[in-house]
């Protein structure tokens, strides 16, 4: 038996055989264990920002949104509402000096975490998490069915320079969808920032007036007619309802 044949055969193991093989023979080095545990801790630990503000809690305003479309075109324009709530375990804290909330501001308190402010300004919704100054605004500008995928496009705008330290958390751990495919929320299976796939940027920096596009793809079952796009990691966060029509 050649080495190549052996590798090929081992490469076609069933999940059950692979699990047995690993349980008996997988040995990770200390550094590998530390690396993985470090990454787990990173994902579970909120990040404290500088120049952060204490925002007064208020109940979230919700404005559900409806998209309707036939399978190849958007047939109805819709107002879009995305609320940024607090992102359990995965977002950054605002703290220190209190600010005067304006009338359009609202926030959602998540247990154990200080609130993150969402500013409602017309049909744009803003998230201000770990920002140096200003706020980041998001608007869903398109949602279309592509076979078994839901393709959502978000436009990001800033009224001042914005910095997020961990965009992969912003992108993958927020905007989870209930697509009906699995019990619980679904993460996007693909994403693109400013039309580019591949390595995501290490930070999101938008100067005043600049915009960027974030595209997310979620798997859906063909029979699902309603998708909820949650601005957060659980179904307790505000959501946008997207209705699918043939």
């Amino acid at each position: 038996m050649r080495k190549k044949d052996m590798m090929q055969l081992l490469g076609t193991l069933s999940e059950e055989d692979a699990a047995k093989l690993a349980e008996q023979h997988l040995v990770l080095t200390e550094q590998e264990h530390e690396r993985i545990l470090g990454k787990i801790e990173q994902r579970l630990t909120p990040h404290t920002g500088e120049d952060a503000d204490i925002i007064e809690s208020r109940p979230a305003l919700t404005k559900t949104t409806r998209f309707g479309w036939v399978s190849h075109a958007v047939t109805a324009a819709a107002c879009v509402a995305i609320f940024a709530g607090a992102f359990a375990g995965m977002f950054w804290l605002n703290s220190h000096a209190p600010v005067q909330p304006d009338e359009s501001a609202c926030s959602v308190q998540t247990e154990g975490l200080p609130p993150v402010v969402a500013h409602v300004t017309g049909d744009r919704y803003a998230l201000s998490g770990m920002t140096k100054t200003g706020a980041l605004f998001m608007t869903v500008t398109n949602a279309v069915r592509e076979d078994d995928l839901l393709h959502v496009t978000l436009t990001l705008e800033s009224d001042d320079a914005v910095f997020y330290g961990k965009p992969e958390q912003l992108f993958t751990d927020n905007f989870l969808a209930d697509t009906g495919r699995e019990a619980g929320l679904t993460s996007p299976c693909a994403m693109a920032y400013d039309g580019k796939t591949g390595d995501l940027p290490h930070s999101v920096i938008l100067e005043a007036g600049e915009t960027a596009t974030l595209e997310l793809w979620y798997p859906v079952e063909k029979e699902n007619k309603t998708i909820r796009l949650f601005a957060g990691t659980s179904q307790e966060h505000p959501y946008t309802e997207i209705k699918l029509e043939d």
Binding site: G11, E15, L28, I36, L37
Partner: peptide, 22 residues
């Protein structure tokens, strides 16, 4: 978290590795 990882890291690693190895 530590106990969960200790008990199941091989199992999780095996499943993930099988799907991502290529």
């Amino acid at each position: 978290a530590k106990e969960l990882y200790q008990q199941y890291y091989r199992y999780v690693y095996a499943i993930v590795f099988r799907l991502l190895r290529d």
